[in-house]
Nucleic acid binder design. Sequence first.
RNA 1: GGUUCCUUAGCUCAGUUGGUUAGAGCAGCUGACUCUUAAUCAGCGGGUCCAGGGUUCGAGUCCCUGAGGAACCA
Length: 504
Amino acid sequence: MNPNQYRQVRLEKLEKLKALGLDVWPRKAERSIGIGGILEAFGGLDGPALEAEPHTVSVMGRIIAYRDSGKTAFLNLSEGGEKLQIYTRKDALSETEWEVVRLLDMGDFISVTGTLMRTKTGELTVKAARVQFLSKALLPLPEKWHGLQDKELRYRQRYLDLVSNPEVLHTFILRSKILAGIRHYMEQQNYLEVETPMMQPIPGGATARPFITHHNALDMALYLRVAPELYLKRLIVGGFHKVYEINRNFRNEGLSVRHNPEFTMMESYAAGEDLRDVMVLTENLFSEMAKLCGGLERPFGENTLSYATPFRRLTLKDAIAQYGAIDRARLERSEDIVQLAKDAHLEDIAKKSPGVLLGELFEHHAEKQLLQPTFITDYPIELSPLTKTLPDNDLFVDRFELFIGGMELANAYSELNDPVDQLGRFMAQMQEREGGNDEAMMLDLDFVNALEHGFPPTGGLGVGIDRMVMLMTNAASIRDVILFPLMRPQTARDETANDADEPE
RNA sequence: GGUUCCUUAGCUCAGUUGGUUAGAGCAGCUGACUCUUAAUCAGCGGGUCCAGGGUUCGAGUCCCUGAGGAACCA
C-alpha cells in the first residue's frame, strides 16, 4: 500500500461525498464551542445532570480514532491537543449524514452538532444529531498508538509530529505560554518591548561568525545579526529607560543538542542599574517561569533543578578551582595557567592570553557540572569587550553568565559606557581579527559615536529562550523546542551542487 | 573535523551462523456487529530491505564508497 494508493482510495470517497450533494470543501465550520471549552465547562457534570438539562453544542476537530460497530460509530475528535468522543447512530442522523459518517477516514475534519451525554463507562460524549463534513485527508496519519517516532521525519514533517504526538503539541503550547509569561514579567518591571534591525551593516554585540547576505538596490553587504546589543544600547543613549527585545539571532556555527543556527534571545537594558540589579531581575525571571510551568522544583534529565531564589554566585576562578580540584592560587599566575591549559589539552595555547585560557579552563572543568542555577562572575576582560571592569581589578569585568543544567542560559554586564575605553577594546578586537580570529568583533564607529553623546550606567542582560524552554519542558535537545529546526535538505546533493565552491 | 550507531510496507517494529517465496501490529480494502475505548471477529491486498559497487553457488544479513539521521568527543 503506497501513498498513491491511499490517495486514490480517499479521492474516490471524496467523489462519493460530492455525489451526495455536499460541498466537500466548505468555507466555514459550524462551531459553538471548542473542545477545550467543552471539557472546561461540562467536564464536571455527570450523566444524570446532563440528561436533566440537555446542552447542545457544535464542535469541530480532526478525526483521530474511528470505532465502527454496524449501525453506530464512535469517533474521537482532536482540536488544540484536546480530544472529545462523538457518538453517531444511524437512527439519529439523516440518511445522507449516515452515509457521510461511513465515508469518513482518520485525519478528516468534521463538525458535529448534538447533545452532551455520558456513555456507560462515563466518558463525556457528543451524541450527533447533525454532521458537517469539513475536509478530507488524502494521506494517512502515522501509527495511532506509537505516533511518529523517526526523529528525522518528526523534524522534517513537524505537522505530522504535532498531529500524532500530543506531548509535542503541549511542549510548543508551553513555549508560547513561557514567551507570554516573559513579556508579562518584563512589562511588570516597566520594560518596553522594542524591535531593532535583524539585518545589520556591521554585525556586533557578540563574538560569533555571522551569516552574510546582499542587498541588491543598495549593492551592499548585510549581515544577519548575531545580537541586538549595540542597537538596544543606542536606545538607552536616546533616552529609553528600560527596553527589551525578544527575537532571533543568527550565528554561523555548527548544530548540536544545544545549538541551532537561528535561536531566540531576549535582551534587556536598564539605565542606572548595574550587574547586581540584573542578577535579581534574572533569577526572578527564571523562578517566575518555573512557577508558571508547575513549580520551583523542575525535573531536567536525571536531575531535579530548584529555581528558588537567590541563585548561587561563584566567581569564574573559584568555579575552576572547585570543579577542577585546582589550587586557587595557581589561577593568579600566568605560567601556572599555561600549565593547567596544557594539562587540559587545550589547543593553540601559545597564541592565547591568560584570560582567554581561564575562560577555556572554565568550560573544560566546570560548565557541564553546573546543574543547579549558578551565576558565574568576574570574567577576563579579553572575553568581554563591551563590559565595565571591576572597581578593583582592570583585568576582569563586571559580568555574569547564568548556568543551569550544564548550559549557559544568560549573559549580563555592567555595560561599558566610557567611549574612549570602548574604542580601545574595539581596536584590540580588530587586532584579534587580523590575527585570524573570525569571531572577533568588528569596529562599529557609529556605536562609539553614540556613546560619546553620553550613555548612562546601564545593566544589560541576554537570555537564551530556547534553552530556557528546554529546561522548563525537560527537553534533551534544542530541536525539541524549535518548531522547524534547521535540517540538511533531503534532495540529492548533485541537484543542489551550485554550492560546490564552498570550502568544507 | 573525529568515533560509534541507525536506515526493512504509509507508520511502529521483528528478521537466527550468509540459505527456500522477507514477517507482525497499526493503517487500508471486503464482510459482520445500535455504548465503543489501541473496539472485536472473518477474509484480502500492500516491499527500490537508503543508494551504488564488491565478496559469494547464494546478501536484508559480510566488505567498500556515498546520502540522510542520532549520540559522544574536539
